[in-house]
Design a protein around this nucleic acid. Structure first.
Lengths: 128, 128
DNA sequence: GTTCATTATATTCCTCTGAATATAACGAAG
DNA sequence: CTTCGTTATATTCAGAGGAATATAATGAAC
C-alpha cells in the first residue's frame, strides 16, 4: 500500500574501484545532510543507523578528488556536517544524469515492455 | 585484474510488484539460455548455481503476460529450455533501452563527474 | 525397459550486510 | 569546568541471499 512508483527503476551507480562513489542512496543522503545539517539527523530522517550513514559519507569523501561533506565534532549542540561546493556540484551532475535517463520512459521500447508486464507475479508453486 | 569496465554502471530494473521482472542479470541469463539451450548449462556458463538460475527463470515467467522461457524435462539427453518469441521481444526492448541509456556517457555531466572521480578510494583509517 | 542429462524442488550451510549497542573524543556555550 | 549533541569507532547480533547438496521425476534415444 505504498506509493505506486513506476515499475521502471533506473539506477545510476558510479564506481570507484570496487566501491560505489555515488548512487541513488548516497545522493539522497547528501540532500538529507543539506536539509538536516548533521550526519546523525540525516540518518534518522532516512531511517538508517548512524554507523551506516557515517560509512556512506566516509566512502563518498574517499572516492572523489576532495571531500563532499565536511564535519565538525564538538560545539555547544554538538558539531554538524555540511555539504561542500564540490559535493553540491557532484550531486547536481548526478541528478542531471538521472533526469536525462528518465527520458527513456517516453520511448517505444518501454511502452512495449509495460504492455507485457504484469502488475504482480503469477503465484508460484510453493508460494515462496 | 578483471576488465576495467566503465565506472558508470546503468542498471535498468523492471519491477513486477516487489519482484524484479527484468534486469541486467536476467537479460544475460536469457542470452545464455539462447546460446546453451538449457537452464543448467546457462547457469554453469554464468557461474551460478542451478537453483538460483532456475529461480530467476521461474520469476521471469511469472512476471510477464506469458512465459519467456519454455522448458522440457526428459528426453534422451535430458530436456532443455528455449526462449520464446515473447522472451526474445522483451530481451530486445530491454537491450534497446540499455543502449539508449548508454548515450548518457557522452553528456557533459558525466564528463564533469569523471574528472572528479578517483580511480580507487583514498585509504580509510582502519583499512576496513 | 535401461540410460542419461535435464527439470523441478527441498534442505542445510555459509557469508555478507546492516541494525543495535557501547564508548570515547570533541568543543562551543553557559 | 560542566553540559550537551554531535563525530568517530569498535563489537555483537540477527536476517537474507546464495552456494552446495540431495532427491524425484521426466521422456526420447537406444
Amino acid at each position: 500500500m505504498r506509493a505506486p512508483h513506476s515499475p521502471l527503476k533506473i539506477k545510476l551507480q558510479i564506481y570507484c574501484g570496487e566501491e560505489i562513489a555515488m548512487g541513488p542512496g548516497k545522493a539522497d543522503l547528501l540532500e538529507a545532510i543539506i536539509r538536516e545539517g548533521s550526519i546523525s539527523a540525516a540518518g534518522r530522517a532516512l531511517g538508517m543507523s548512524y554507523r551506516r550513514t557515517w560509512m556512506l559519507v566516509d566512502m563518498m569523501n574517499r572516492c572523489w578528488d576532495g571531500p563532499l561533506v565536511e564535519t565538525a565534532a564538538g560545539g555547544s549542540h554538538g558539531g554538524g556536517a555540511r555539504v561542500t561546493e564540490r559535493g553540491l556540484a557532484i550531486l547536481g551532475h548526478y541528478r542531471a544524469m538521472q533526469a536525462a535517463a528518465a527520458q527513456m520512459e517516453q520511448g517505444a521500447p518501454w511502452a512495449a515492455l509495460q504492455a507485457a508486464l504484469r502488475q504482480t507475479p503469477k503465484p508460484g508453486g510453493t508460494g515462496r
